[in-house]
Design a binder for these strands. Structure first.
Lengths: 210, 210
DNA sequence: ACCTTTGCTAACAATCTTGTTAGACACTTT
DNA sequence: AAAGTGTCTAACAAGATTGTTAGCAAAGGT
């Protein structure tokens, strides 16, 4: 069989595994179910990935990388003034999560339930944490001294931004059910949340007259 | 055997189930593990609660109630001016979650993964949603007209408050691992988050001079 | 042509997990 | 005391779930 076909099968297992793990979590996922969705015998799954755990780690690593990437885009190109970069960063981050709405719950869950996986996430995120703590804090300090924004610990600001954005997606299924008026649809709700999150953060860093 | 002893066994199973379900979720929880932790044979667990699902529903219902309760306390006694009530509400809510740190992840998870349970949560939360949409919005409108605060959709404000508070606890295990300097301990981090969340919301609703 | 490697299938196996059941024991009621 | 009721134990059962293995078949090199 051609190399292409092999990669194809492997890829199909990975794709099926991704869906299964993201929607059901590690404990809820079934290897037989993954194999079935991929259109292969379940022995094949073990042939390619040995164990459920190994297949999972492959997915988890991908997703942790993606999560880290999403956070990185909060502070993009330094061509604009800081306040504009933050505004754009929040939007970009929000859109990134919108394109991967299952990501937050998955990462939060699998990392919290198994402390062994903390390390895996840390490896992916530590660089970003450095950038934030050093580079961004410096920029904030300078802008604050110029009187453009309020002085703030950027790690706290970062957590707030991520909180507001991620939670919009985590909470959506619940909110959707509460306001079961067909009036509020997903698009409209998310657009409103995005604007609200930006406004909230902007007000947090703007100078206030007493 | 006395009635007291019976209740005791039942209670011990419930307590063990609570811990197991909260830490591992429905799929990860094992009825044998619960029975062992409760110090009873696993047949006893089935004797008292019939099935794993029924035992789980008992726990989930308790926790959903608790979650609803925690949100209710955001708008407490109407004896103070609105802005002070909101400030106190955020703190009370934050402390509530601090006393039940496993609650957010559990509720979010079990409700998202199984749409069948949406209804259960809705039953508990719908009253609060009403209070917010009607009573609180009215108060906000009035205060805004008096020029005390900015006009805002209180549902959006509410989501932001819950986001910031809950996420502080969801994210803590991750953050703890990243800043593994022993310098930052749980108490200090949470105190800082609480203050930050209050400040963020206060700035969101305060009037800004242009 | 022959051997090796690789992908693959079908069947099996071990273990875990939930749930059931027959019966023992104690305690109450009649 | 006999019968009934509720609590409990030990053993078992069914099924799910992960993982293994023997062997077939095709591809590819020598």
């Amino acid at each position: 069989m051609s190399n292409n076909d092999k990669q194809n099968k492997e890829l199909q297992i990975l794709r099926a595994a991704e869906t299964e793990f993201l929607t059901k979590g590690y404990d809820g996922a079934r290897t037989t179910s993954i194999a079935k969705a991929a259109g292969v015998t379940h022995a094949m799954l073990h042939y390619y990935f040995r164990t459920k755990e190994q297949l999972f780690e492959r997915i988890v690593n991908d997703k942790f990388k993606l999560m880290a990437e999403s956070m990185l885009c909060i502070f993009g190109a330094p061509s604009q003034p800081l306040i504009e970069r933050i505004r754009n960063g929040i939007c970009t981050h929000f859109d990134f999560i919108a394109a991967n709405p299952l990501l937050p719950r998955f990462v939060i869950n699998e990392v919290i339930t198994d402390p062994h996986r903390h390390e895996l996430l840390t490896n992916n995120i530590s660089k970003i944490a450095q950038i934030i703590s050093d580079k961004l804090q410096k920029e904030i300090n300078e802008a604050a001294q110029r009187g453009e924004i309020t002085q703030i610990d950027c790690r706290m600001l970062f957590i707030s931004m991520v909180s507001l954005n991620l939670f919009s997606f985590i909470a959506y299924p619940i909110i959707e059910f509460i306001h079961n008026d067909a009036a509020i649809n997903r698009e409209a709700f998310l657009a409103a949340r995005k604007a609200e999150n930006v406004e909230t953060i902007m007000r947090r860093i703007k100078i206030q007259q007493p």
